[in-house]
Every structure is written in structure tokens, then in C-alpha cells.
Amino acid sequence: MRQSATRIIFWSIAGLFAFPLFLALRDLPDFGAYAGPYGDLVLATCTGERHTPQGVAAVTFDYRGFDTLGEEFILFAALAGALLLTRPQEDERQHPPRDHALDRPVPQGNEPIVAAGRLMFPFSLMLSIYIIVHGHLTPGGGFQGGVLLATAFYYVYLSGEYQDLHPFTSVPLLESLKVLGAAGFALLAASPLAVGLPFMTNLLPLGREGGLLSAGTLPLCNLLVGCEVGAAFLLLIDAFLRQVVVIGKKKEEDS
């Protein structure tokens, strides 16, 4: 009763909200009618001044690299929050890992799935590394590649057991990688300050356009961000799995 009433109220108010918004959105430029000038200026300058054919990467890590630094630390903060919320509590204790589902028995190892996992793991790993190191040349980069990198390891868990994933989720190592990615990016961005240049100025040689080692700091930024994002997503899955597979409430155990 309460639920359906709430729903009716919600949708009628949502209509009231959408109506003026729709009227306001009518006066936006038509789809595809780009008036500039931001994009045009970036495209006019990014090949000549930064030796990268990839305008998006140039905006992300150079023109508006400071935003990206902020975004990277949003991920860092979100992860810190997630780890904080899943930290071991006093009334919890660890038991040997065991898979369990609430409503059905846990299926035992299934060979086609294991085979699929074995197939996907190296491909995902390779693709993620490709996407990270080519971030300044083709669409992609550290954020996308980093998520893929973690996905490769998710396949290990999905096709196997928690124990199979465990060797890859050494918390000290992953935390160091995460810190290296975050602090490294910030320090790289801050390094021009030491020679009196503005924050995030490119100090590295720009190289030949289209080369793997070109576009100055862009590949390095991608690498560091990929490092942080990959480590962060692995830490996250580890923390979540630990909650389900390893940790139990004390009273639950005793009873």
C-alpha cells in the first residue's frame, strides 16, 4: 500500500520535474551542431604542440590533466572508503575460505568454464596492457585499461575458486601499486614546479608523432593511472569476496 502510493507520488513529481527541464533542453544546439570553440582549438593544437593524434588523451592528461588528477583521487578515496567499511571487526573472525550460496548448493568445478577462463585470462591481460600503453595513440588509456586489467583476474575467480585468485591479491603489493599510481601521477604532475614551470607542464621530449614513446608525459600518465585503477579494482574484489567467503560473525560460528 505504502509502496504503491510512494511510487505514484514519485512519478507524478518526476513529471513535474521533467516538464520544465524538457522545455529548457529544447533550446540546446541540435545534435551534431557543434559550435566550438574548445574542441576546434584542441584539435588544432594537439598534433602540433603535443605530437599526439588522440585529442581525448591530450585533453584528459594535458589540457585538463588537473581534472584527471582529481578524478584519480576520487577513485582513491572511494577505495579507501570501501576498505574502511569492509575492515575486519572485533566480533568477526576468519574461517577457511568456502564458497556458499544462500539458496542452492555450490556447483563443483566445470571443465568448459575452466577452459573458457584459461582462454580469456591471457587475452584480457594482453588487451589491457595494449590499451594502457597505446592510450596516447588510440582510444582507451589508463582508466579503461586498468579496469580491463582487473577483469582479467576476475576471470580467474569466475572460472575457478577463491584460492586460485588469492595469490594475485596480495594486499601489501596491491596497496603499494595503488599508492605508486596515485602519488606517482601527482608527483609527476608536480615535478615541473621544481624548475619553476607551471604544474603539469610537459618536461619530456615529445618524440615522433604516432610512436609508442611519444607525446611527452602522456604514456607515463596512462601507465601510472592504469597501475592505480587495476590495483584498486583488484583490492575491491578481494575485499568484497573476503566478506562473503572468509569472514563470519562470531556468534554465527558458535551457534
Binding site: R64, G65, L197, P198, F199
Partner: peptide, 16 residues
């Protein structure tokens, strides 16, 4: 303070 040294071009602010 213009980040990355991206000063305005033709009066348009390119950077942050």
C-alpha cells in the same frame, strides 16, 4: 594560475 601553462589562446581559456 593556468595548469600545464595553457594560457588563453585568442582570448579562449584552453586549460584549467
Amino acid at each position: 594560475y593556468w595548469f600545464g601553462g595553457w594560457l588563453p589562446r585568442n582570448g579562449f581559456p584552453l586549460g584549467i
